[in-house]
Amino acid sequence: MKIDTPKDTPTHLLKNPESYITRVGKFMRKTSLDELPQILNILKGEMSIIGPRPCLWNQYDLIAERDKYGANDIYPGLTGWAQINGRDELPIDIKANLDGVYVERMSFIFDVKCFFGTIISILKHDGVVEGGTGELDKGKTSTPNATTSEGKDTKGII
Rank of each mutant, 00 (worst) to 15 (best):
E35H: 05
H12W: 14
G80Q: 11
D153P: 02
N58E: 06
I122Q: 00
D137F: 07
Q38Y: 08
P144E: 07
F115T: 03
G80V: 13
E150C: 03
I3F: 14
T154L: 07
I109D: 00
P76F: 04
T143N: 12
P144N: 05
A64R: 02
T141K: 13
I157A: 14
L62F: 11
I109L: 15
F115Y: 01
H125W: 13
G86D: 07
T118I: 15
I119E: 00
A82D: 04
T147G: 00
D67E: 09
E35M: 14
I157K: 11
Q38I: 13
E18Q: 14
N41K: 13
T9F: 07
L90D: 03
D4R: 08
T79F: 14
I21S: 08
N58T: 09
K155Y: 14
T133I: 10
I39N: 00
Y20D: 06
D8A: 05
F110I: 12
K7D: 08
E35L: 15
K68Q: 05
C114G: 06
D73Y: 12
I158M: 04
I21V: 12
K44N: 09
T22G: 06
L36S: 02
G45P: 09
L56A: 04
V129S: 13
I84H: 02
N41S: 14
M1R: 07
T79E: 09
Q59Y: 08
L123Y: 05
P17V: 02
I49A: 02
V103S: 02
T143A: 15
D4W: 10
E130H: 12
D8T: 02
I50L: 12
H125G: 07
I49F: 03
V128H: 11
S107I: 05
T148V: 00
R87K: 07
K7E: 12
T148P: 04
C55P: 02
L78M: 15
L36A: 04
F110V: 13
N16E: 11
I49R: 00
Q83I: 09
E35S: 10
T31K: 08
G51M: 02
K68N: 05
I42H: 00
L62K: 08
G100P: 11
P6I: 04
K155L: 14
S142H: 09
T5V: 10
D88N: 15
K2C: 08
E65H: 03
T79I: 15
G51I: 04
K30R: 15
G131K: 08
N41V: 15
Y102Q: 11
D34W: 11
G100D: 10
I63S: 08
G80R: 12
